[in-house]
Design a protein around this nucleic acid. Structure first.
Lengths: 225, 225
DNA sequence: GGATGTGAACGACTTCACAGCG
DNA sequence: CGCTGTGAAGTCGTTCACATCC
């Protein structure tokens, strides 16, 4: 689903957090924010994991990587946990992104409130279609992708969002990287690769549809017991 | 990212394919279709995995679960592999889906060509917004979500796609399940749970953004060596 | 020689069991 | 007593090494 580009040589032993646990930390964070909004001040590991289908032990193991935040017999302080997870994930600051490919999906992302709620801002738009260039969407002018190298650096986005056809994805990714972007969110149905120092998350809707088809397919054949 | 709903009791020992390998099979399939289009007839495990960042050994292990399709010294027949993967994933037939939530993302999915290309058809639309009910999008009328129970069963969709707010996701999921749907693709930022026999894939864009933020955040601090 | 298939070693992640603290 | 933190055990997935076959 996501990778770091090149296969890494070093086993990365210093990295405390496993890939899987980072995903769960996101889930915990959301759950904790819900609980916080409900006025809950202290939580147990069981309460956090319950609605998420995660065991209490697993929650404690994950939270242990943030430091010693729990109080035996009491639980965890919700606000402390929220702050610690935000800081660990690196979302206690603002991220700015360039979006390339102002099609249906690109526009949907532009209008998606969830991005702003998490301090992700889209600060530049690009498209190759001459009919789209010059248009304004959500207060941003669409620039031609060919001018990415000149337009983007002064804006200084640290992320790139790819909502382009698969055939264009790697080329656009390379241009974004050349323009200084440090992370890529790729929605094209292709595996985008990047050099060390640039992170990539491939979303790949097609793959997830096929995962679902497989699960349903399997469940159906299991029913024939 | 995706789960089967309730935590399962039985370790499901009969299931040959691991979750991770199913995802890779999707990637192989896409790569093989590219190669097929280029007129390639035989491939080696190395060639399939190369552009995907997967080792040859891993490819062979994954393909082994499809049966004995390889020929030592020669490789695999591209067409055979494509057919075998399609059949294993359960995408050698048509899947029909109801889409609930005709907002920006819902509309983007409706127009997404990749669905049709993979034999996934959206056959019914629902929304709670009275302003949207009755509208026609891509040839389909938007029905009120409240009438899901009456409208959907005669149409007979086997999947449900949720592009609704997180607060509504579980309720809508329950209604879809009651209407006979066997699989759910959930785009809402929440974990949707389903009883045994119904499969769920949670896409969760927020989580993937946070994954990316974390990776970039980590890469930045590693640079201080 | 060139490539597959696969047991065995290895490593990563999860669950268990329980010590320890409030 | 309730709940955390964590070594140990167990499970799952990946990589290695090599026997095997065209």
């Amino acid at each position: 689903m996501s990778n770091h580009g090149e296969p890494r040589k070093r086993p990365e032993t210093d990295l405390r957090l496993s890939r899987a646990s980072v995903g769960r930390l996101s889930l915990y964070l959301r759950r904790l924010e819900e609980l916080h909004a409900e006025g809950v001040g202290k939580v147990s590991s069981g309460l956090v994991g319950e609605a998420l289908g995660v065991t209490d032990t697993q929650v404690r193991k994950d939270l242990a990587s943030l430091g010693r935040l729990g109080h035996p017999g009491i639980g965890y302080d919700v606000s402390d946990l929220i702050a610690a997870i935000r800081s660990t994930l690196g979302i206690d600051r603002e991220w700015s992104a360039a979006l390339v490919g102002v099609g249906n999906l690109g526009r949907a992302l532009l209008r998606y409130q969830g991005l702003a709620a998490r301090n992700f801002r889209i600060v530049a738009l690009f498209d190759t279609d001459p009919a789209k260039v010059g248009q304004v969407a959500e207060g941003l002018v669409v620039h031609p992708t060919s001018q990415l190298g000149e337009v983007l650096p002064p804006v200084g986005a640290n992320l790139g969002i790819l909502t382009v056809p698969a055939s264009a994805a790697q080329n656009v990714a390379d241009e974004l990287i050349a323009a200084g972007v440090k992370g890529l969110l790729n929605f094209a149905p292709s595996v985008v690769r990047a050099p060390a120092g640039v992170s990539v998350v491939n979303v790949d809707l097609t793959m997830q549809l096929e995962q679902l088809a497989f699960l349903v397919h399997m469940a159906a054949s299991e029913r024939l017991d």
